[in-house]
């Protein structure tokens, strides 16, 4: 048994306030704001919503909090939290729930006030007796360990890795909502404050406030809403580890599996043939 390719679609999407939000905003405020804007984008309203998918590091029971905030006691909920890919997992789960008829209009929401409250307060790490005593600066040190292995196995250079941050900044300069307004050079990255070798602060993600939401519905409803539907063709998931010392291979991520399964579910042939968007 599996979900049907294209049986559901994304019908609305929006961002919440971004960058540095007003004092006192909570992550749930930002989720609700994103949900409100995304529903308007779809031409729907809160009264249509019967499923909530959400996750944030700042709220362990975000589904409870969001259902309470939105006044949706009977909503189908899922607050699976697996890190940054939580929302792709939510889309996969919403696909199944919608197709099974367990709900009809699902929202997937995120909110974070990590800039305002500080990174440490927003993402407190659980104690791991096999890692915490060594004080890795997570998640940067986990990626740094993987980078050291990549450099060792493939000869990847610092400059090549810095190009990722440089490219991301170049794309950001095209977006008026982006936090950073200045170009970034490889030298800027290499000369920035070191965090966990080989990475400097400029190799690492910006810490900003933000959030957003998307709306999903079955294809028959999607075809009658405001935008051309963005059909969900397929998804894949793979969990390699929670702690970096348990990652089977530092240079082969679970994306190798999840990407292949998503393409296969979407009806794809070789991965190289795909023209569909992937997340």
């Amino acid at each position: 048994m599996s979900v049907t390719r294209g049986s559901v679609a994304i019908v609305g999407a929006a961002e919440s306030d971004l960058d540095a939000v007003a004092a006192g905003m909570s992550p749930i405020d930002l989720m609700a704001q994103g949900v409100d804007r995304a529903l308007r984008d779809a031409g729907l309203g809160l009264r249509n919503v019967d499923a909530l998918f959400c996750a944030t590091t700042q709220a362990r029971t975000s589904a409870l909090s969001l259902a309470e905030y939105l006044g949706l006691p009977d909503a189908y909920t899922d607050s699976t939290i697996v890190g940054g890919s939580s929302f792709e997992v939510h889309v996969a789960h919403a696909h199944a729930a919608l197709e099974a008829g367990l709900c009809s209009v699902a929202v997937v929401a995120y909110g974070s006030t990590q800039r305002t409250v500080g990174r440490r307060a927003a993402s407190a790490r659980e104690f791991n007796p096999y890692e915490t005593p060594f004080r890795p600066f997570l998640p940067a040190s986990a990626y740094a360990l993987a980078a050291s292995r990549h450099m060792h196995e493939y000869g990847t250079t610092r400059e090549q890795m810095a190009e990722v941050a440089v490219a991301a900044r170049a794309w950001a300069l095209l977006n008026p909502a982006a936090w950073e307004k200045q170009p970034l050079t490889i030298a800027d990255v290499l000369n920035a404050r070191p965090i966990s070798d080989p990475f400097t602060v400029r190799d690492c993600c910006l810490v900003t406030d933000g959030g957003g939401a998307i709306v999903l519905a079955r294809a028959d409803l999607a075809e009658h809403l405001r935008h051309a539907p963005v059909y969900v063709l397929g998804s894949g998931q793979s969990i390699t580890h929670a702690s970096i010392s348990s990652m089977p291979s530092l240079t082969r991520t679970g994306a190798v599996e999840s990407g292949a399964w998503a393409c296969q579910a979407a009806g794809g042939e070789a991965v190289g043939d795909r023209r569909a968007g992937a997340v």
């Binding site: 060594f134 004080r135 890795p136 600066f137 040190s141 740094a144 360990l145 993987a146 980078a147 050291s148 292995r149 060792h152 404050r193 070191p194 965090i195 966990s196 070798d197 080989p198 530092l250």
Partner: peptide, 15 residues
Amino acid sequence: ATTVVHPRQGDPYNV
């Protein structure tokens, strides 16, 4: 695999 953590305060250390 190896990295050197640079804390805000204190000396860098190996992980």
